[in-house]
Design a protein around this nucleic acid. Structure first.
Length: 276
DNA sequence: CAATCAACCTGGGTGC
DNA sequence: TGCACCCAGGTTGATT
């Protein structure tokens, strides 16, 4: 569910709310503990090792949230498709599919819920983070990400550009919504082979990717009508996609019906007239 | 190595 | 009402 702008919204709020807070206790559901260690680093001491730790800072890399703790350790959280982190009062009724509860001082709880259970929770040493979440390409909003990075990575790539944008090794944190949006705004057809893009198209693509991600962060993410992304306070995002999820509806630029295609088991959306 | 695809899960919507 | 699909914002391991 959440991509870079949604995860970044959550990160910012958690950093403000939890910096300096102590995790009084941590409980993980039996169901979640039964997951393979690729999704839950169960070492029997997850709860015990977290109890009493201090949250020093909350970082983000790609779609991963990194809780930097004291004594030194990193809690890695990935929300998968349907994961949520909710900051609530302890007395509030427990949400369905709650898999982990972090009791915070001052009477609050951080609850991790995830109906589809594609999320991950890992507790690792600070030096183990890279190997756990990597290898990852550059952060698209960093100065290190330019059209020249794309030019290098695309030079010998025959895969469709849509697939490449979803590849975390090419660029980190971009998912199905924002790859569709960036391609639409750049006027590039999703099925174009990476290596066929001209320098001008690469410039457009890099610039529009940065632009749409920045706008989405400012709007606190995207919440589709049929899905339920919410921030840590349960509030929805205000960003509205231009093509994603609009199959059959008129293109906002030319009025042509937006087309939905399937690539690698995932739907994508584009305007057959504006995107070449 | 690069590209493609099935699998991992649950729940909501649709059409018969 | 029941049921059999189809769809969903992600990642990854197996297979070509």
């Amino acid at each position: 569910m959440p991509e870079l702008p949604e995860v970044e919204t959550i990160r910012g709020d958690l950093d403000l709310q939890l910096r300096g807070a102590r995790l009084e206790s941590v409980t993980v559901s039996r169901r979640w503990k039964s997951l393979p260690h690729t999704r839950f680093h169960e070492n029997r001491s997850f709860e015990r090792r977290l109890r009493g730790t201090l949250v020093e800072r909350v970082d983000r890399r790609s779609k991963y949230l990194l809780f930097q703790l004291q004594p030194p350790a990193t809690l890695i959280v990935h929300l998968g498709m349907s994961g949520q982190l909710l900051l609530v009062e302890r007395s509030a009724p427990r949400e369905l599919h709650t898999h982990a509860v972090f009791r915070i001082d001052r009477g609050h709880e951080l609850r991790f819920t995830d109906p589809r259970m594609f999320g991950r929770l890992w507790l690792v040493g600070a030096d183990e983070v890279e190997q756990k979440i990597g290898p990852l390409g550059p952060e698209p909003l960093s100065a290190a990400f330019t059209w020249r990075v794309l030019a290098t990575k695309f030079a010998k790539k025959q895969a469709p550009v849509k697939a490449a944008l979803l590849d975390m090794k090419v660029v980190a944190g971009v998912g199905n919504i924002y790859s569709d949006e960036a391609l639409f705004e750049a006027g590039v057809h999703p099925l174009r082979a990476c290596a066929s893009l001209t320098p001008d198209e690469l410039k457009q693509l890099a610039a529009h990717l940065k632009s749409v991600l920045r706008r989405a962060v400012k709007s606190r993410g995207t919440t589709l009508s049929d899905a339920r992304y919410a921030d840590v306070f349960g509030e929805y995002g205000g960003h509205v996609p231009k093509v994603y999820g609009r199959a059959g509806a008129p293109c906002l630029q030319c009025g042509t019906a937006v087309v939905r295609g399937v690539l690698g088991n995932r739907g994508y959306h584009f305007c057959p007239r504006c995107q070449r």
